[in-house]
Amino acid sequence: MSDGSTPRRVRHPLVGLAVVGVSLTVWWPAFTLGAWGQLFFDQVLTVWVAATATFVVVAFQPRPSPHRIRRLIALAIPSVWLALSFAGRPGGGPILVGIDALAFVIAIAGVPFTSWVLARIFWPDFGDGIPRRIVALGLAVIALMVVASFVLGTQQARFLTCQDFALSGNSNPPGCVDATTGR
């Protein structure tokens, strides 16, 4: 800059959009884990649907992708979990615990990963030129939203009632407070 003015900051609006989008998708699984102590099947199956659809898009992309095989393997993990769930239910035991642990990882980590892959498909240059500190800040905000949502779930009796859960079509989590009795 020869005119003496300060250089303009480069803006990355898509990073903000990605952070908001991923935060919106991970808050409910984190909240339910806090409130009910478990993830609901529909949350994990939602990740499976998104990952499977993204798998098909990545597999049949007309242009070459340098990380296609790694993405396909990662996107197949929810389908592997689903297949293992069919195989592991009758006997239970340690295999079932492992399958449930994989479901937890898929629900929490699968959403951000699938979102990232989709963003890179539709905006191939998304992420290019973004400083690591901006990426780290975005990941930190998402992690903060997950932790805050989990804590809100554990503290739901302080600001929600059983009627709130019933009205929204959910079952009552342990410890919810009845609006009429306060207990």
Rank of each mutant, 00 (worst) to 15 (best):
A143N: 03
G138Y: 04
L160K: 14
T52I: 08
A157G: 07
F60S: 14
A18G: 10
L144Q: 01
L152P: 00
W48A: 13
L82H: 07
A101K: 02
P62S: 13
I69H: 02
T154Y: 02
V22E: 09
S2E: 10
L144I: 04
Q43I: 07
S5P: 05
A136R: 13
G169L: 11
A140R: 09
C162D: 06
V47Y: 02
V147I: 14
S115H: 12
I134C: 04
H12Y: 15
A148W: 06
I130T: 15
I73Q: 06
A30T: 09
I130E: 05
A119H: 01
D125S: 15
A35V: 11
P7F: 02
G37T: 03
L82A: 15
G138R: 04
W123A: 14
T6D: 04
G169N: 10
A59R: 12
G16D: 05
V146S: 05
I134S: 03
V20L: 15
V49R: 06
R8D: 10
G175I: 05
A59M: 11
F60T: 15
C176H: 07
Q38M: 12
F150N: 08
L33M: 13
L45R: 09
A140M: 11
H67R: 14
A103Y: 02
R183I: 13
V177T: 15
S171C: 03
P78Q: 10
L82V: 14
T52E: 06
N172Y: 02
A109W: 09
I73N: 03
L167E: 14
L39P: 01
V26Y: 07
S85V: 08
I142M: 04
I106E: 12
P131C: 06
G34L: 07
G92F: 12
A76Y: 07
R89N: 04
F122C: 05
L152H: 07
T161N: 11
A87N: 01
P94W: 14
L33P: 08
R133M: 08
S85Q: 08
Q155N: 08
F31E: 07
V117C: 09
S65A: 13
A74N: 02
T25H: 12
P124E: 02
R132C: 00
G37C: 03
F159W: 15
